[in-house]
Write a protein that binds this DNA or RNA. Sequence first.
DNA 1: TCCACTAACACTTTTGAAGCGA
DNA 2: ATCGCTTCAAAAGTGTTAGTGG
Length: 689
Amino acid sequence: MLGVEMYSGLTVGPQKIGDCLCRDREAPAHLPLFPPACAVTPRLLGPPPPPPVSSDPASKPQRDEAKMELENSSLWKQFSSVGTEMIITKKGRRMFPGLKLKLSGLNPALQYILLLDIVPVDNSRYRFQGGGWQAIGSAEARLPDRVFIHPDSPATGAHWQSRSISFHYAKLTNNTLDTQGHIILHSLHRYQPRVHLIKARDVSRWGRAQHTFVFPETQFITVTAYQNSKITELKINSNPFAKGFREDGMNSKKKRDARQKRKMTVLTETLDTVHCDRCESPEPTTSSTDLQALALTSLPPLSESSCGFTPEGASYQVPEQSIDLSQAFMTSQMSDISIPVTDGMQEPQGNEAANSMMEGSDVMTETTFESDFSAAQSNSSSFPSAPLPPSSSFSSDSTHPQPSFPPVDYPSLLPTTPSLQQTSFTFPTPPPSDASSPSNTYSTVSETPHTPGSFCAPSNTCRSNLQVSADSLHTQPSHLLQDEPVSAAAFIYPNMLHANTDPASVTTRTFVNQHQPPSSVNSSSSSFTFPSVAQQMQTLSLPSVSPSPALSLQTTAPLLPPSSFPHSSSTLPHPSFQSSSCLAVTSAAHHQNMPNPSTSSYTCPYPPVEIGAIPHLGPAGPYRPEMVLSRPNLLPQLDPSLCSSTFPSYPLHLHQGPHSSLPNPFRHLYRQPQHPHSQRSYISTRTVF
DNA sequence: TCCACTAACACTTTTGAAGCGA
DNA sequence: ATCGCTTCAAAAGTGTTAGTGG
């Protein structure tokens, strides 16, 4: 059993950024992945939290051992090797594969909240042409960010660790006016799902237990119709709901073609019957209506199987890895708002169903992937794109076939990287620490308060916020808050674009708090309006927040070794996938604005942090009243280029699954777009289910 | 004309209510 | 009255495809 003491550091002291658990024991343990997101995370996710300012003597810097595995990683990698596409529809479409996760290292007694959000990887729009995805222009304006709250949230660490965690109910939509709480995405854009683990143990120190997990293989491009036949093939073969389209299914191409043929035959024979009395077709005759319909219907050409691709055929081997890109230091202060909730321990029925489905889909064993996924990705990466300086582009080795999609996602870091296993980002707010972090720790990033917009400019309009729903609101003593200034709220998003990122020369950067909107930072209380919430819940009072001191990001992460993509390209021709802008950025970051993994510290300004509603998720009994602080840092951007005006800051919306333990009125919390001049964030709730 | 998107379709799985018997 | 099991219909999740609109 894990003792609570183990997590004390999480609440008050510096913590390890995050760990990724490598399930594949066969593969080199703890191979760090440096996907674009990972590479940018250090700065995108925000600066490390300020040194703990706690009056609690018991508080001691301590690492959080929370780990997350992507259980169906092999399935994801299959798709990733081809170039994962996710259908998005107006009504909302589930993700397939879904995110099936396994958590460990949690304190069984503490409560945690799991969130899923999906952020753009770059600022490019893509088109499938020439057998691969090519960046064809700038991305559309970023849509309001929404977060899907896992239905089980909040639940104890024991709960999360006792079963597979699936975000099966999360749906994606391209309907910008969606009112169902689905995650809104743009079609033909690249996205990266992220899972946030938030500790809800201590209201006053909740923010420091935040972890963000990013699995590079889960990146995908949104589409309204599948572009790559290989993806279609994979989906059909993997998704139980698409069983009907399999070779032996009733809706398979073969049978559909047969039906078409039959129809054609019937039509022909019927026509013959009409024009020839001697016709003796054994086939049933069709009605005149059918005849008309058939006559008017042009028969589609009988296409052959578009793809002979089979999961087994994919030779793309990647190591089983999970990445913890960010472990946020939720700096301190919480709002004084707490909301009672129903029993969070109950498990949604849908969860198991989803899990079962996921299990069925995850047909490959983890051990099948032995190579360094990220390295492989980067090696072959030639993601198009996005307008980038020539120097920033990643040239792919023409001699090596490239996966159509992955290459983009897993930029090679520094070829000179000696060891990935020891790669780790640490934000040693005093004391510095983990330079010598265990080899099992890698790719950890502290997530700091920031938002898409905040990253580019310290303007009020550039702040993203994460807000969590709550059943009810009530004010709680905030003496701790008063004693402990919220440092997180004071961070200014680092302006990476202007940062000097010469990997060779720069070894350390210091996050500098350059901007702190007074209104959002120093206000003793903030009022939140809940348009669709009970009157008594319309307003939330937030504790005062103080600007955070400058932070330093120290990383001992070794650079990624020269990428090597062990997938047998020969068997699976991957369309050329030019490096995406994100990749380019990541790559270029070494020269321009990206934090170099090898650098020991990182300097950047921090955007002001907005504190959102803290749901009182714990029910009476096993769950004590707790609050969840909405943090802007939950919405970091993956691509620094996104910080530009191209993506104005949007409020972050939360959405919780239909089986959420949260009462209906609070299952969805939407952060309505803020007025450009407004420094206050507000939360609205909506009962959807 | 091309491309992205939508809605309808057929098929499947999932879900939950109803019925039945112990 | 309760519980467990089975059955069945409705709901929901799939990819396909024809049509629409820019």
